[in-house]
Design a protein around this nucleic acid. Structure first.
Lengths: 181, 181
DNA sequence: ATTGATTTGTTCACTAATGAACAAATCGTG
DNA sequence: CACGATTTGTTCATTAGTGAACAAATCAAT
């Protein structure tokens, strides 16, 4: 993996940051490429150098965050749920503006689906129906139960301005996961 | 005045910001060009594209702030001292890190001289020895009195973390100027 | 539907930034 | 002082960003 020219990284960072800010201020449909260019302090042409259009920009942005979260999960795969959750909640906190924009009302509905998809992927190997407590329960039922509660908790936490710090969320969600997997 | 390429402005802004930060963290002598480049997220060569060396960078930085202050003063030349001071104190507040670095102990002694030079320039036409209250006083004595008190007040205000908001400083310094000019 | 204005996506010649390489100067420690 | 290591300042070929121009598509309001 040869290192990328720093100009590319700087441009893309500026463009993504500008786009998230604008998404939190107005509807996706009302955002023009010129808006993004102005906010990012970048030439309009530069945006087309990196993205096909604003839909592509949104897609790549979502994909990037999902991938980052996937990597975080992989790196904490062996830890207890308690500790494994902490980096993830810290990630959510660090990118609060993005997630609050994506998860609230007018945000991108596509993101919620991708987020659920990602969680299913992460949790599907964690469900253990051979455990005594899970007798009589179906694997996919448990999986859907967990994934949807997880998304819901995250949505609530973000939408309400993160009322508890990440470590508290990680700990309590950890207990609930332990209890149900 | 043809507009400057935005890349030049961005590079210079990043370099100046990085340099001020580093100046507030360690001695000027201990700062390398590579340090500045790393902090500014810019190639080392880019710095040499804009400045001869770190001395030149410091010079240009000081010169720029002095010029900005000069322009602020020109634009408020006809106002009462009270109102005329406000934009200046706001400017100091906005560039707090720069001024606190320049005016405190290990900072650049050159700056203090240039600052005094600038203030002499600004106040020299304000002294009016024909006024009754200034009978028997020499023009240059009044000028030195005012300029040094001004610098001292600014040094004190900056060094002590700006204990009063700009508008309070502007008002009170305005009264003192009125009384002495 | 028709108009005029805005936005889109692309092209292009030009300029700035990059990073690697290099010799020279400076530093710092034995 | 002498040594190696670091920093400096310059060069150069390559790449990314710029901004202006343009035709085509979309929008908005009558």
């Amino acid at each position: 993996m040869s290192k990328v020219d720093r100009r590319i990284l700087k441009s893309q960072e500026a463009i993504k940051k500008a786009f998230i800010e604008l998404m939190s201020e107005k509807n996706f449909d009302d955002i023009t490429i010129q808006d993004i260019a102005d906010r990012a302090n970048v030439s309009r042409g530069t945006i087309y150098l990196h993205y096909l259009d604003k839909f592509d920009l949104l897609d790549k942005l979502i994909e990037e965050h999902i991938n980052n979260m996937r990597e975080i999960c992989e790196s904490t795969a062996e830890a207890e749920y308690n500790e494994a959750n902490l980096p993830l909640f810290e990630y959510l906190e660090h990118h609060y503006l993005f997630f609050s924009t994506m998860l609230t009302s007018k945000g991108a509905p596509q993101f919620r689906s991708k987020f659920i998809e990602f969680l299913i992927e992460e949790f599907k190997d964690e469900v253990d129906i051979t455990k005594e407590k899970n007798q009589g329960l179906n694997e996919d039922v448990i999986l859907q139960f967990i994934v949807n509660s997880y998304v819901g908790i995250v949505e609530w936490w973000i939408a309400n301005g993160m009322p508890y710090p990440p470590h508290v969320m990680a700990e309590q969600v950890g207990i609930l996961l332990e209890r149900n997997l």
